[in-house]
């Protein structure tokens, strides 16, 4: 969108505010809770936040290309319930069930993407329909309540970690999270990632320029489904089996992405900011918890914050666009 003539380290639009807020929150955490006096506290926070960050990264792909994925919450529930039912506590089942879960996530994402692009249904509706279908189908299959159990080797990913000399116990979820984040950043810097953002900005232009719009959109949904499956594996290990495990996660992931300054409707925002948004949200909840704010008020605070964040971002963007429009066609970036 902008072609800087001189390279300088720059952050994508809207990344700076969320990083600032995140830094403030992290410092505040250190003052609020003794657990955050050492790295282990922050590692625990990162471990707790990992599933949401993964979901936010997946949601980012879809949102930046101009869509919505409302189905991830029920997909997470479905995955955890399926895992418990198929593993039945037996370690021998772990490997193929994990493969199956990832495949299922990918499949759901593919269906979302194909219905959106081939049948021309708005993604909001497609994924809303998928939400209903997954919710219904999973409980139809299990008869109303989740059955079975996860195996210890399955739960390792959400609970366990590797022993490192300096850091101490490094949770697997943090390792997975970092790997996914690095891969996502590299992907977004490559040609495919850039075209994905362009699709969100102006689909017709990309199509006329020879970009494969449909394929990219399907890819975004497939990645979102895959990452939701990964998040479900971590969450299942971390929190165990319940029918409510994924409830509301779709809105929380969208909140996180938007908090990261990513524009709903696509075409603007970075994946790092989306991940930072998720981490910010989770730090905020931890902080509220430490400060003794009642759990009930948590959602109210969340509500105020997302409105404030988006209002700040969009008022800023419109001001910038206006000042840009007022100037000559060659925009001078501040």
């Amino acid at each position: 969108m902008n072609a800087p003539t001189t390279w300088r380290p720059r952050l994508a639009d809207g990344t700076a505010p969320v990083l600032a807020v995140l830094a403030v929150l992290l410092v505040a955490l250190a003052f609020a809770g003794p657990a955050y006096a050492e790295p282990a506290g922050y590692l625990a926070l990162l471990k707790r936040a990992a599933p949401l960050v993964l979901l936010a990264i997946g949601q980012y792909f879809v949102i930046v290309s101009g869509g919505f994925d409302l189905s991830v919450g029920s997909l997470v529930t479905a995955e955890v319930v399926i895992a418990a039912r198929l593993i039945e506590g037996d370690d021998a089942n772990t490997v193929w069930v994990i493969a199956l879960l990832l495949g299922f996530g990918l499949l759901v994402g593919l269906v979302n993407g194909l219905v959106t692009t081939k049948l021309l249904v708005p993604s909001f509706i497609v994924t809303l329909g998928m939400l209903l279908i997954l919710d219904g189908a999973v409980f139809l299959w299990t008869g109303g309540a989740p059955r079975g159990a996860l195996s210890p080797s399955f739960r390792v990913f959400g609970r366990g970690g590797v022993d490192l000399p300096v850091l101490g116990l490094l949770p697997w979820s943090v390792v997975i999270l970092l790997a996914v984040l690095v891969a996502a950043v590299l992907f977004m810097r490559g040609g495919t990632g850039r075209t994905l953002v362009a699709v969100g900005d102006n689909e017709d232009a990309v199509r006329l320029a020879g970009g494969r719009v449909d394929r990219l959109k399907v890819l975004a949904f497939a990645l979102s489904g895959l990452l939701a499956a990964l998040a479900a594996i971590l969450l299942g290990g971390f929190a165990g089996v319940s029918a409510q495990v994924g409830q509301g996660l779709e809105f929380r992931a969208i909140t996180a992405v938007v908090l990261g300054g990513v524009l709903l409707g696509g075409g603007r925002g970075s994946v790092v900011a989306a991940a930072a948004g998720a981490l910010t949200l989770e730090s905020l909840f931890s902080l509220l918890n430490l400060l003794g704010v009642a759990g009930a008020l948590e959602s109210a605070v969340q509500g105020v914050i997302i409105i404030a964040a988006v209002a700040y971002a969009s008022l800023g963007v419109t001001a910038r666009l206006k000042s840009r429009a007022a100037r000559t066609p060659e925009p001078a970036r501040p």
Binding site: I254, V301, Q302, G303, I306
Partner: peptide, 9 residues
């Protein structure tokens, strides 16, 4: 969504 969360709180 924000207003909904506030009402919920």
């Amino acid at each position: 969504l924000g207003v909904a969360l506030i009402l919920r709180g």
